[in-house]
Amino acid sequence: MLLIMVAISCGEDEPDDNPNASIQFNFAFEVDGEALDYGQAYLINDDVVSFDVAQYYIGELSLTMDNGSTLNFDDQYLLAVPNTSARADAGENVGKTITKVDFNVGVSPEENSQSEMDFTEREETDVLAAQDPSMHWNWNTGYKFLRVDGDVDTDGDGVVDTGIAYHIGSDALLQALSVDSNIKIDQGDNSITFVLDLADFFANVDLSSEIDTHTGNVPELAQRLVNNYSTSISIE
């Protein structure tokens, strides 16, 4: 019953170790369709904002092929960070088309509980190990599933002046997404890009007044942002 072991390796510009067929997972961050640059000022809902951290965990990733078979990446997590990528072997699937991409935004309860293994016990190369900027919560058990940090202009002079931080986590807010796709797997390199558009993500948020959620302190805002995943995360 054990299917193909699929290993994901992470890093920037890794050498292609499978000349047959591989999938590279890319992580794109945008604001209104324009590539995100840390530190640059954007206008979202009439508020001037800039960002300096935007990242999230992808878990329980599963790719469904046009013949109904699936390629599962159980127990493996991707950390979506601007300008990074991860690569997996797709050898057996050449010629098929990926019609659906299923994944969680966040970390499953088992790993999130920190009971079997916590983030200080993991190998440095494990995306669930301690990161900088951090993706673990220290005051609360578990991970930040998604975090976006930056600054916003609150006094209307067009210059950012106040920190913003949206840190979403806790088991109750683990969110499964299922996104249709049409990606043919050819010999050689193939790529799947997860795109998070921050303008869509904050569509119904008043950034200059709703300046943070560390989830438990403003759970309603965290839930609203989770509800926005489906309209702000797409697959290309």
Binding site: S115, D118, N138, T141
Partner: peptide, 10 residues
């Protein structure tokens, strides 16, 4: 919030 003293110092 912290379920083990062994990582509280963080």
């Amino acid at each position: 919030g912290v379920t083990k003293l062994d990582i509280q110092a963080l």
